[in-house]
């Protein structure tokens, strides 16, 4: 429940930079993974709209989709417009997605699980309930 996004900026560049970054001769900024010296476990395989993708273990669906260059996975009820992650902390419900047939999951909170069948959510995502 806690939503403590940092407010007071107390940056201490020397202290907080990983050692590699300290070398100003390094021409390439590091990727996020090397920044925290991450050695992830084996990737998680899932599909998104039929496309085979992988996530790093523990990554949210939103993070895995971002890593694949995908920024939208929902269309709005009214205008049918594309949407994806916005607040990143489960507050805005913009990132709703259908996972294994269950609609309205928040992609920024739900971790990718092996074999997940993930699909773009159309509108309310509840067409299956429509008696028509």
């Amino acid at each position: 429940m806690t939503r403590n996004i940092p407010y007071t900026v107390r940056l201490q560049p020397g202290e907080n930079m990983p050692r590699r970054l300290g070398r100003s001769t390094d021409p390439r900024p590091p990727a996020p993974l090397s920044l925290v010296d991450a050695r992830p476990g084996p990737p998680v395989e899932f599909t998104f709209d039929g496309r085979a993708l992988t996530a790093l273990p523990g990554q949210s669906l939103a993070a895995a989709l971002w890593a694949a260059g995908i920024t939208s996975w929902r269309t709005t009820r009214g205008g049918g417009r594309p949407r994806g992650a916005f607040c990143g902390i489960g507050q805005c419900f913009d990132c709703l997605i259908t996972v294994n047939g269950r609609p309205n999951r928040r992609a920024c909170l739900v971790p990718a699980a092996p074999g997940d069948v993930v699909t773009t959510q159309e509108g309310h995502g509840r067409a299956a309930l429509d008696p028509q």
């Binding site: 996004i5 790093l56 971002w66 890593a67 916005f86 990143g88």
Partner: peptide
């Protein structure tokens, strides 16, 4: 995306938008 959201996605998922 939200500025805090971008930060959160980076901190937890190690990804950039």
């Amino acid at each position: 995306i939200g500025a805090g959201g971008a930060q959160a996605m980076l901190k937890s998922g190690l990804v950039l938008p």
